[in-house]
Design a binder for these strands. Structure first.
Length: 229
DNA sequence: ACGTGATCATTT
DNA sequence: AAATGATCACGT
């Protein structure tokens, strides 16, 4: 094996993190799981977060679910990104939950979405449906921060969404809204409820929502990184 | 219930 | 075929 795994050890610098991420590139999920003594699920159907948690462990991220970056000391958020053989993302990327109840004073500059996006380590995973989970290969890591154009585009989407929510129009928002940043349900199922505000300003129950990056956005990001644009 | 990690399954 | 709306697992 040409990679080392130290699950108990958090990288102390960006360089150290990238060294470890680069060492994973070219290996399969099965190899990584084997090195950690983990079983590979037959399917992701009931293990949807398995790939992300596997890579977290390999890179020494704390397996907690606190609302802080995966590498808190470095301010870096980790995202695995399933891609097809052309490098195009197969899924949208979950960012954070949408605040539906206290939306008056919210600004993009201080939003959770912007904080999450400040510095992201994307790990592409070659994930075609006909490739067994254990045979899927890890790609080269991409440490990304938004450039001015990307940030302004995301800010605009975010602001349009939040303006609607502030007007009590959350129920009118669909996944079709937003050029790069969309809002979709984010819950165990459609029966889960949280508090929102209706168009009269009254508190109402509604389904929890999350912000997601469209595949068009992450796809462009990958192509730009690899010099294809 | 809400946060983390996401992908599934149906519709378009 | 791609995108949307729904869903799965686990920790706090």
């Amino acid at each position: 094996m040409t990679f080392e795994i130290a699950p108990e050890y958090t990288p102390q610098s960006e360089e150290e993190l990238m060294e470890r991420a680069n060492a994973l590139a070219g290996h399969t999920l099965g190899e990584l799981a084997c090195a950690l003594g983990l079983a590979v699920p037959a399917s992701l159907r009931r293990h949807k977060g398995w790939v992300g948690q596997l890579i977290e462990t390999c890179l020494g991220a704390m397996a907690t679910n606190r609302p802080v970056p995966d590498f808190e000391n470095l301010g870096i958020e980790l995202k695995t990104l399933p891609v097809d053989r052309f490098g195009q993302p197969r899924e949208t990327t979950y960012l954070c939950t949408v605040d539906l109840s206290e939306v008056e004073e919210l600004q993009w500059e201080s939003s959770r979405a912007r904080k999450k996006l400040a510095r992201v380590l994307f790990i592409p995973i070659l994930a075609e449906p006909d490739i067994d989970l254990g045979a899927r290969m890890v790609g080269s890591p991409i440490l990304w921060s938004p450039n001015d154009a990307q940030e302004q585009a995301l800010r605009r989407d975010w602001q349009e969404h939040m303006d609607l929510i502030a007007q009590g129009l959350v129920e009118t928002i669909t996944a079709r809204d937003g050029r790069y940043l969309q809002i979709r349900p984010k819950a165990a199922n459609a029966h889960v409820m949280t508090w929102g505000v209706d168009d009269r300003g009254d508190a109402v129950m509604t389904t929890p929502r999350g912000f997601y990056l469209r595949t068009s956005f992450t796809g462009e990001l990958l192509r730009a990184h690899f010099g294809l644009i």
